[in-house]
């Protein structure tokens, strides 16, 4: 359950940015390959925001689809997982171009 430390990280970042203002909503970008389960972050969010300026804030999670580029033939394609092979040439030398995001995108403050 590293989602607990992840969620605590979100709260710390938002608190720093909010500088005392109450936070109404928080938007996170979570990549499909990030290893973080959105439902688990939602589960931790309430406990982690208690008695902070984020208490009661709306949590919005945008999942970012995984995409890869083949190092051999330069094809770009959706990645199902780290082990997906290139649909163009069948190779496994794939660079991840999106899907590893773990970011606080924006928030609404009062």
């Amino acid at each position: 359950m590293h989602e607990l430390s992840i969620t605590q990280g979100v709260v710390d970042i938002c608190q720093d940015t909010a500088a005392g203002r109450r936070v109404v909503s928080v938007t996170l970008l979570i990549g499909e390959l990030s290893g973080v389960v959105p439902e688990a972050v939602e589960f931790c969010f309430e406990a982690c925001t208690k008695d902070t300026p984020l208490e009661g804030a709306r949590l919005i999670i945008e999942q970012v689809p995984a995409r890869g580029r083949c190092k051999d033939c330069s094809a770009e394609f959706p990645l199902r997982a780290y082990y997906s092979s290139c649909p163009g040439c069948g190779g496994h030398h794939v660079t991840v171009i999106s899907g590893e995001e773990l970011r606080v995108k924006e928030m609404e403050v009062e």
Partner: peptide, 12 residues
Amino acid sequence: ARTVTVETDILA
């Protein structure tokens, strides 16, 4: 409420 752009890596 107003929107603030954060764009900070959670693992920063």
